[in-house]
């Protein structure tokens, strides 16, 4: 085994280790787990507790999806062959999920149609999350240096700290995020935090 291969093995050991923990993939997978658990919580709760859990879910989804749109997908486009197509597929899934979320937001949490609509959203979000893990994250870990993954993680945490309200359909591209109204203003803050962290790089 040559020196280069030795190095590759070491790098893998560091990035793949969940305890080392602060590469962007480990962080986003943690958020996937938290989102799934929040769906369980909304479904099990009633009344004001359900409304409150739902608000937290919307907030977490917003932070998570904004971070992915700003940090992960743009990087994936250039990081590996076919990255552009993979990112497009993920954005289409995000758009479909956001439309389901919009339909839910106008609904009272005690409405009998709420839980079926919630389950439909949950399914769209889980399918999207699993597809990212299988087709995008696995390749990111293979093609991106540990330092870069750590920097991306820092940016995602910066976005987390700005706590935007909720995602907005039709703003899946980084460019379009600049243009939209008050909700998007919150997302702008997340985006700005990300850009600052990434040092004005390509995201």
């Amino acid at each position: 085994m040559g020196a280069a291969e030795d190095e590759a093995v070491d790098e893998h050991a560091r990035t793949g280790d969940p305890v080392a923990g602060d590469d962007v993939v480990a962080l986003l997978m943690r958020q996937h787990g938290e989102i799934h658990t929040l769906f369980d919580e909304v479904r099990a709760a009633e009344g004001e507790a359900r409304a409150e859990a739902f608000r937290r879910l919307v907030r977490l989804l917003a932070v998570h999806e904004t971070a992915e749109e700003e940090v992960v997908h743009p990087h994936a486009r250039t990081a590996f062959d076919g990255g552009g197509e993979v990112a497009d597929d993920r954005l289409a899934e995000e758009k479909a999920a956001k439309e389901k979320l919009t339909a839910l937001e106008d609904m009272d949490v005690s409405d009998p149609a709420f839980v079926p609509a919630l389950l439909s959203l949950r399914n769209a979000v889980l399918v999207h999350a699993r597809a990212e893990e299988r087709y995008e994250f696995a390749l990111l870990r293979r093609t991106t240096s540990p330092a870069r993954l750590a920097l991306m993680a820092k940016a995602v945490r910066a976005a987390e700290a700005t706590a935007p309200t909720h995602p907005h359909p039709g703003v899946e591209s980084a460019a379009a995020n600049l243009a939209v109204g008050p909700v998007a203003a919150v997302m702008d803050r997340a985006r700005d935090a990300i850009r600052r962290t990434m040092g004005g790089g390509d995201g």
Partner: peptide, 10 residues
């Protein structure tokens, strides 16, 4: 719980 941050009770 370590990798996916979910509890097995789910």
């Amino acid at each position: 719980e370590m990798i996916e941050h979910r509890k097995a009770e789910s």
